[in-house]
Design a protein around this nucleic acid. Structure first.
Length: 564
RNA sequence: UACCCGAUAGUGUAACGGUAGCACAACAGAUUUUGGUUCUGUUUGUCCAGGUUCGAAUCCUGGUCGGGUAACCA
């Protein structure tokens, strides 16, 4: 476990609220937050925003942050998710002060319900789901009281206890708060508090056959844990009056609920339901497919926790429901990896180069700098010989304007190697495809500098054919070709918008020898191409590298501009 | 057709009644043995209309636009 992340310097409206509360002494200057996921899926980048916010606030103010599993719906939840969520929070660099489960409070919450009944503020409703929906009214039409609303306290208490005792089947009764069926806020129209579910819970087993609903559980959990600021996303704004009502009628310790806008990213789908569908239909390889926005996915993709935290810091926290460009995320990981990644040479789309005037059997070990951003990273030796591979994109038989890489008659530098000049092009006579370049080198330019001081416009990467290792390289791109996935009309098949090129597998890229020692999770920069990491499926016999993100690429930009 | 919330450059955010800043993007240049990095510079903004005030992005009123809300989900 690394040390506690430094507190964020970014200010936001929630910090303003906390500052004001500390000023007034409202919570005795305590700050106690919580991150409350339901263990029904894998965490994604949106959750990272919430995690960084809640844990970050606790660090900033010297307070505490709990991890609490909101596990009130036994049919959707599983320990698999509990475990992955813990792992993800730790990976992001945070450690919770207390670990709780809402199910820890089931007995307490049951007693709260009895108290509510005793106060005449809750009743057992025996209507069907349909009837309840009918009587609740609509957004513009008031609801109406149902036939069971005026049961006596004794009758309600008796029925509720028998619900718990397992005397009734699922759906026979529910417990509802008695508030106001004509309320303009739908959440206040006698909200459901408990339902009967004869289902096994991943923690409480078969102890319970009634389970409290979110609204009835969440505020009480916050109150029990003496949370000061209960931070959630915008869609719970309309729940706050109920949150406050439930705590106030029982005269309990009252945390402050604060809502902020969830994260939306271009080219990304954040809906848990749709992510689950991608997994279940094998549109991706799993929850940790490197194209997924899950923390498991981006971790496998090669993202670092430092970059994720920097990103969350940069995007800020507001109540405005915006759409953040994915390049902001990409910029965060580039900035981090640029400083710490060693460089290596890898040729993804190779074309053979023969240095005609280089001795047939000579192999030279050339010194290469590991990381120009970090002198302490030192140097390594890379083998050079007569037959090399270079990137097919680094050669143009008829060079375009502004293309200053290799072409017939032109001299370029091989990184850490020699200056070479292309003398001729060998083509497959049947297909006309270029299969080989014949070049000459200048023996006086070892290391890359010419004694006469002449300059070349371009430096390209290469590997010695005889010494290269072969590896599978997986090139990842955006999962969705559409920037704003919320624009996909409801009902339209959203999977039509998946990017067919989101994964390009290169079966046999040619890699520099030094990469042979890399283990799964190891990261490096393939010079001029991007940042890569070794995939978990990689083995010594069949190495696999994932592209985390490309480098910025001026040449591709120039080409795109010309094309459009 | 109800209620709640929001609106600052292309995008995301800061300014808390007193000079509209920052990051990313874009554009131009310098440096560079990665068309990377770094550095310098440029372009672009307070949704609209009123009001309060010496002074409004900020406060008030009205409008416009956008988001949320009618699971026995969270």
């Amino acid at each position: 476990m690394e040390e506690t992340p430094a507190p964020s310097s970014a200010t936001n409206f929630i910090r303003d609220i906390i500052d004001a509360d500390n000023e007034s002494g409202r919570f005795d200057r305590r700050v106690h937050t919580r991150f409350p996921p339901e263990p029904n899926g894998y965490l994604h980048i949106g959750h990272a925003k919430s995690i960084c916010l809640n844990f970050g606030l606790a660090i900033k103010y010297g307070g505490q942050c709990n991890l609490r599993f909101d596990d009130t719906n036994p049919t959707k939840e599983d320990v698999e998710y509990v475990d992955s969520i813990k792992e993800d929070v730790r990976w992001l660099g945070f450690q919770w002060d207390h670990l709780f489960y809402a199910s820890d409070y089931f007995e307490t919450i049951f007693r709260f319900a009895e108290t509510l009944i005793a106060k005449g503020l809750a009743y057992v409703d025996s209507c069907s789901t349909d009837e309840i929906r009918q009587l609740r009214g609509t957004l513009t039409v008031h609801g109406k009281p149902g036939p069971w609303r005026d049961r006596t306290v004794a009758e309600n208490l008796d029925l509720f206890r028998r619900m718990r005792a397992g005397e009734f089947p699922d759906g026979a009764h529910v417990l509802r708060a008695k508030i106001d069926l004509a309320h303009t806020n739908m959440n206040m129209r006698d909200p459901l508090l408990y339902r009967i579910r004869h289902a096994e819970h991943h923690r409480t087993g078969n102890t319970w056959c009634i389970y409290p609903l979110y609204d009835f559980t969440h505020g009480y959990s916050d109150s029990i844990e003496r949370i000061t600021h209960s931070i959630c996303t915008l869609e719970f704004e309309n729940h706050r009056p109920l949150y406050d009502w439930l705590i106030d009628v029982l005269e309990l310790y009252h945390p402050q609920q604060i809502e902020f806008a969830r994260l939306n990213l271009t080219h990304m789908m954040m809906s848990k339901r749709k992510l689950l569908e991608l997994v279940e239909t094998n549109s991706v390889s799993g929850w940790d497919d490197p194209r997924m926005p899950t923390l498991a996915g981006i971790r496998r993709r090669g993202y670092t926790p430092e970059a994720m935290r920097a990103f969350c810091d940069e995007i800020g926290v507001t109540k405005f429901n915006g759409l953040t460009e994915i390049v902001v995320l990409e910029n965060a990981i580039r900035a981090d990896l640029n400083k710490r990644s060693n460089r290596a040479m890898a040729v993804i789309n190779p074309i053979k180069v023969v240095i005609d005037n280089y001795p047939d059997d000579l192999v030279e070990e050339l010194e290469a700098v590991n990381n120009p951003e970090d002198p302490a990273a030192g140097t390594r030796l890379v083998p050079f010989s007569k037959v090399l591979y270079i990137e097919r994109d680094d050669f143009m038989e008829i060079p375009a304007k502004q293309f200053f890489r290799l072409s017939p008659g032109r001299e370029v530098r091989l990184r850490w190697g020699y200056l070479i000049t292309c003398q001729s092009v060998v083509k497959d006579p049947s297909t006309d495809e270029i299969i080989e370049l014949r070049c000459t080198y200048d023996p006086l330019t070892r290391g890359g500098n010419a004694p006469d001081g002449r300059k070349v416009k371009s430096t390209i990467h290469w590997v010695s054919a005889a010494h290269a290792m072969t590896a599978e390289v997986r090139l990842y791109d955006h999962l969705f070709k559409l920037a704003d996935v919320s624009e996909i009309p409801e009902g339209e098949h959203w999977k039509n918008w998946l990017n067919p090129a989101s994964l390009v597998v290169v079966p046999s890229a040619k890699l520099e020898r030094s990469l042979a020692t890399f283990k799964p999770g190891d990261r490096c920069q393939f010079e001029r191409l991007g940042y890569f990491c070794v995939d978990k499926e990689s083995t010594p016999g069949k190495p696999v590298f994932n592209r985390t993100v490309t480098l910025k690429d001026e040449w591709t930009k120039i080409q795109k501009k010309k094309g459009s």
